[in-house]
Amino acid sequence: MSINKTKDIFDDDFEVIYQEDYSDLLRDAADDDDDDYEDVLSTLSELDENRNNKGKNRKKKRRKAPNLVSPAAKTVKTGGKLVYKLVNLLLRTATLILTAVIFYVLAENFWKHHAAYGDVFRAFIEKNYVLAAYTGIALFLLLFEFFSFLVILTGSKKSDHKDRRLDTGKGLFSFIFIYAGAFLSYLLCGLIPSSPAFLQGVQGALNVYGSIHTTLLPLCIAGIISCLIRKFLVR
């Protein structure tokens, strides 16, 4: 190749680099790349730290924000409990009134028909077994209603997990028993024999008891409903 052609290829700024100088240049370039990489990592770290700080600040703001829903929910819950207690009190009062009315109906009818069997105050002196049997059945039913009234009045128990009393719907059995007994007496009293003598008193008492089964039906149905509501819906 001629000298003129060589001059055409390499211009005036061409610089010859030896092997040692080339290694230094590579090292400097690598150092520059490491510095750029460290700068990028540092920038990312700062961004991540800023993000975490913002998240913490948001949590603090959330914690400091007042909870306006909780007081309102407590107020609604307390109001609901008061309503339930009031309804329960009214239903229990109604149950007690129904029990008292049934007691009165039984007492009135048994007393009205007792004179046919003699003087009740002289029954034991005169050994009037017919009147004694009649009076015995009447007293059994009246005492049953009286104790049912007391059970309804105090018929609540403490909850297993809270220190409060729950209505268990006491009185349900008494209404079922009174009406079922009256209806069966109406159907079966005619089958009772008249001998021995005291069976006449049993027959007479059951005849009176059975004769009022239509009067007792609405009273007992209303009582059963009130007990079921107290037991399962309003406690």
Rank of each mutant, 00 (worst) to 15 (best):
L82A: 14
L217A: 12
T75Y: 10
E38R: 07
G155F: 03
S185G: 01
Y37Q: 13
I102Y: 00
A72N: 07
P71C: 03
D8F: 05
S70D: 05
L47Y: 10
A107F: 06
K127P: 03
I224M: 14
T154C: 04
S148N: 06
V202Y: 10
L206R: 02
S194C: 03
L143G: 05
D8C: 01
K59H: 07
A205Y: 03
M1L: 06
A138Q: 04
I125M: 14
N207D: 12
V202K: 03
A205T: 01
K157S: 13
E126Q: 07
G118Y: 04
I192Q: 00
E15F: 04
L142T: 04
L191V: 05
L187A: 12
N207A: 11
E126I: 00
G55P: 03
Y186L: 08
Y209V: 01
N52G: 09
F198H: 13
A132V: 12
T93A: 11
V208I: 10
A182L: 10
D11P: 09
A138S: 11
V105S: 10
T214S: 13
Y209W: 15
L41S: 07
L25S: 06
N4H: 07
K77R: 12
I17T: 09
K157C: 08
L26Q: 11
S70W: 09
N67L: 03
D119C: 05
W111V: 00
S226G: 13
D32N: 08
Q203A: 02
F140T: 13
Y117T: 01
N57P: 02
L141I: 09
D24I: 13
I152A: 06
T75V: 08
K64R: 14
K77E: 14
R164K: 15
R230K: 07
L217F: 12
A116Y: 07
L86F: 13
R165P: 04
S23P: 00
A115M: 05
G136S: 10
